[in-house]
């Protein structure tokens, strides 16, 4: 056995250990079931500005980890969430693509590419996904409590005080997409992590988010137009 071989093994063991430690840490939230009243007590004060705003906008970083895939798949871009309209998700790297989710359905458009649409009429599942996305961005945990068992704990203190919320889908159709979700945030969600039953893990970071205070610009509204 070579030295590098030993090193590699040690490294692997360390990584595995860290991984499971991190996993155990994330599981902690699921020991704290919350009802909607407790949930709004946990989130309410911090999320107050968002509750009054028409939506929010910001940058995102998505990191998808798949079993057998040595490095995660990274994508970045910016997004706009408008309570009355939907989610506009503009991926800029590694390629340019716009994904728009409304109550009527989902559609995506690549740069110069054709548009693909899934109407909620054809796919009742899309309506579920839309509801969940909307509730996540709006921090409407009352709505989320309908589709999920909810858990939560407060995190940090003082200026960095926030919350961590865990969601487990009640719906079989939804648990095919993810088994559980963990969301961190304060005034709004800053990190969303989705894990499915087959080891797929999607982590979405939302740095540089601003809450929309004024009305929506015509250009922004246009983004949701057909």
């Amino acid at each position: 056995m070579t030295v590098t071989g030993v090193m590699r093994r040690l490294l692997l063991a360390a990584l595995l250990f860290c991984g499971s430690a991190a996993a155990a840490d994330e599981q902690a939230v699921f020991a704290h079931p919350l009802n909607p009243a407790q949930m709004s007590a946990l989130l309410g004060p911090a999320a107050k500005p968002l509750a009054a705003a028409p939506g929010l906008r910001g940058r995102f970083e998505q990191r998808k980890t798949l079993p057998d895939l040595p490095r995660p798949l990274l994508s970045t871009g910016d997004f706009l969430f408008v309570r009355d309209l939907g989610v506009w998700w503009h991926t800029r790297t590694p390629f340019d693509s716009v994904f728009i989710l409304t109550r009527e359905g989902a559609r995506s458009r690549d740069e110069g590419g054709a548009e693909t649409r899934v109407s909620a009429d054809q796919q009742p599942g899309v309506a579920v996904a839309a509801r969940i996305f909307f509730a996540l961005f709006a921090l409407d945990f009352e709505a989320l409590a309908k589709d999920f068992d909810t858990y939560g704990i407060p995190t940090g203190s003082g200026k960095s005080a926030g919350w961590q919320v865990g969601l487990r889908p009640k719906l079989a159709a939804m648990s095919a997409v993810f088994r559980e979700a963990v969301i961190d945030g304060a005034e709004h969600a800053t990190r969303i992590e989705l894990r499915d039953a087959h080891g797929d893990r999607t982590e979405i970071l939302l740095p540089e988010v601003s809450i929309l205070t004024d009305g929506l610009s015509a250009a922004d509204r246009q983004r949701f137009a057909n």
Partner: peptide, 23 residues
């Protein structure tokens, strides 16, 4: 086209609209 569609599902929320996940 199939390639691009698969990529979109991996890098954007379009993947969450599907009954089966990427792996």
């Amino acid at each position: 086209r199939l390639h691009d569609e698969a990529q979109r599902a991996l890098y954007t929320p379009a993947g969450f609209m599907r009954p089966f996940n990427a792996s």
